[in-house]
Design a protein around this nucleic acid. Structure first.
Lengths: 121, 121
DNA sequence: CCCGTCCTACGACGGTTCTCGTACGATGGG
DNA sequence: CCCATCGTACGAGAACCGTCGTAGGACGGG
């Protein structure tokens, strides 16, 4: 990394090109929201293939592209793998508290729907 | 209001039927986000015709229905007019802080895009 | 009772999205 | 050098979305 990513770079929107509507739309799909939640659960970057999604690889590529083009995630190549990281800082600067609220809301809904017993441990 | 809305009732989702994805999707359209912002700017309920939207009445009806069916607004008839109010309490209970974050983000983006000079007065 | 206003229903259209399968390029290990 | 792995590109189809126009129903005022 750091300087070894000269080849195969990917286009990302600048902070001032990130649109709230685009971010909300990106997060309004269950598959993509699940990706973002997994990404938010760790500080590390995760490869596309790390995710266990109920769609094919083609569709996975599509969803990651939507997330990247809306400015939610940053993607960098690492050998054959493509690593994904949340653009926390930019999003926090543009829309303070928004990402956290959505993640908390997703967690709340997940607990409400998938675990009525509320597993705390 | 209070008890005069016996006729012509509209179907609204219960709090436990409101889905985060649905709310985010409802808010990801510029017209609908504009409606929600206007609604949030006042405590009063507003009629559909009060809004000055760049679409026809048919489309306006469609957008209000999306907002109602996703659980974002509550609609009640008042004579020939249909009044619209944000479901602040339910949303705050289900997804604490989410609505506020989105509204702040929309305001921030509006200031960033529409008013680079930042009109404060 | 009639009419104007407000909103809805229905049908339609064009565009976008989500999904897939298959075929293809890029990288790194043996 | 070959091959396995990872991701992409390119169709392609089904579904959905945003938009409109027209026609029609409900309400309130004169």
């Amino acid at each position: 990394m750091t300087e070894r990513d000269t080849v195969r770079t990917l286009a990302h929107p600048e902070p001032d090109e990130i649109r709230l509507e685009g971010v909300l739309h990106a997060l309004s799909d269950p598959v993509r929201l699940s990706i973002v939640r997994d990404l938010a659960a760790t500080e590390a970057e995760l490869s596309c293939s790390h995710f266990d999604l109920p769609v094919t690889k083609s569709t996975t590529t599509h969803h990651f592209r939507v997330l990247r083009e809306s400015g939610v995630v940053r993607q960098t190549y690492r050998g054959t793998a493509k690593m994904n990281g949340l653009r926390r800082t930019e999003l926090q600067t543009l829309f303070p508290g928004l990402l956290d609220s959505v993640l908390e809301a997703a967690a709340a809904e997940g607990a409400r729907l998938g675990a009525p017993g509320a597993p705390l441990t």
